Simulated assay, not measured.
Amino acid sequence: MYRNNRPVTPQYKPDYKVKERARKSDKIAKQKHAKKVEKTVKQVNPTDVSTDKLSNVFFVILLVIIGALVIGGALLFVKQYNSAPTKYYRWLEVKKDASSSQIRDAYDELTVKYNPQTHPDCKNCEKKLKQIKEAYEGLKKM
């Protein structure tokens, strides 16, 4: 085509606008795709837990462990001091299922047997008498 005896160069303005629109739409599509990918990554990624939630979980676990230790220690303490030690029964020379009257009788017999006033030459009598008194007091409370 000729105009004024010169060849007419094709006008690319419409093509340029089409390309610009295509670039913008590609850019928008990429941004939307990136947002979708970001959402799916957030849903799938297990390390995306906030530090506040994570610290709260660790704090609760720590409290549970400390509570279990305290309760366990208290139970051991109660068990240790509620039940009479086996040495008390051994010191009074009675069985573990002895009644209170049998324990009292054994105490009376042993205090007479190990009385340091009646046996002045016995060196272990005082120690043995202290053990017998301790055992009787411990078993009497039960």
Score class of each variant (00 low, 15 high):
29 A>F: 02
47 T>C: 08
44 V>A: 10
35 K>A: 15
32 K>N: 15
34 A>Y: 15
5 N>M: 00
49 V>P: 00
44 V>P: 00
39 K>Y: 12
10 P>K: 09
43 Q>R: 06
8 V>D: 04
5 N>P: 00
30 K>P: 00
20 E>K: 15
21 R>H: 10
27 K>H: 06
34 A>C: 10
17 K>D: 09
18 V>I: 01
12 Y>R: 05
19 K>P: 00
45 N>V: 03
43 Q>V: 04
19 K>L: 04
23 R>F: 00
7 P>Q: 14
7 P>E: 13
47 T>G: 15
24 K>W: 04
18 V>A: 05
49 V>K: 06
28 I>Y: 12
49 V>A: 10
29 A>E: 08
48 D>I: 01
28 I>G: 05
37 V>P: 00
11 Q>D: 11
26 D>V: 12
6 R>P: 01
10 P>Y: 07
49 V>N: 04
20 E>P: 02
45 N>C: 05
32 K>Y: 10
22 A>Q: 13
46 P>R: 03
35 K>D: 13
32 K>C: 09
34 A>I: 12
14 P>R: 01
18 V>P: 00
21 R>E: 08
37 V>R: 14
22 A>Y: 11
41 V>F: 12
48 D>P: 00
42 K>D: 07
35 K>M: 12
40 T>L: 14
48 D>A: 13
48 D>G: 03
34 A>R: 13
26 D>H: 13
19 K>E: 02
14 P>G: 02
22 A>N: 09
27 K>P: 00
24 K>D: 14
31 Q>N: 14
16 Y>T: 01
26 D>G: 10
30 K>G: 06
29 A>G: 04
43 Q>S: 05
29 A>D: 09
34 A>H: 11
38 E>W: 10
42 K>M: 08
49 V>L: 08
7 P>R: 10
30 K>S: 06
7 P>N: 04
31 Q>K: 15
42 K>W: 03
9 T>S: 07
13 K>H: 08
7 P>S: 07
48 D>Y: 05
21 R>D: 08
41 V>N: 14
29 A>I: 04
30 K>T: 07
7 P>H: 03
28 I>L: 12
28 I>N: 13
47 T>P: 06
45 N>Q: 08
8 V>N: 09
10 P>W: 01
40 T>P: 00
13 K>W: 04
31 Q>R: 14
32 K>S: 10
18 V>T: 13
10 P>G: 10
41 V>M: 14
36 K>I: 07
26 D>Y: 13
18 V>C: 02
33 H>W: 11
15 D>A: 09
34 A>F: 14
15 D>G: 00
13 K>N: 06
45 N>R: 14
38 E>Q: 11
46 P>M: 05
50 S>I: 10
42 K>T: 03
47 T>I: 06
5 N>A: 05
16 Y>C: 02
25 S>F: 08
15 D>Q: 07
28 I>A: 12
26 D>R: 15
23 R>G: 03
7 P>W: 09
6 R>W: 09
38 E>D: 04
24 K>E: 13
36 K>M: 11
6 R>Q: 15
32 K>L: 10
14 P>N: 02
13 K>L: 01
44 V>N: 06
25 S>R: 11
14 P>K: 01
24 K>R: 09
22 A>K: 13
33 H>E: 15
21 R>F: 02
18 V>K: 03
50 S>P: 05
15 D>Y: 05
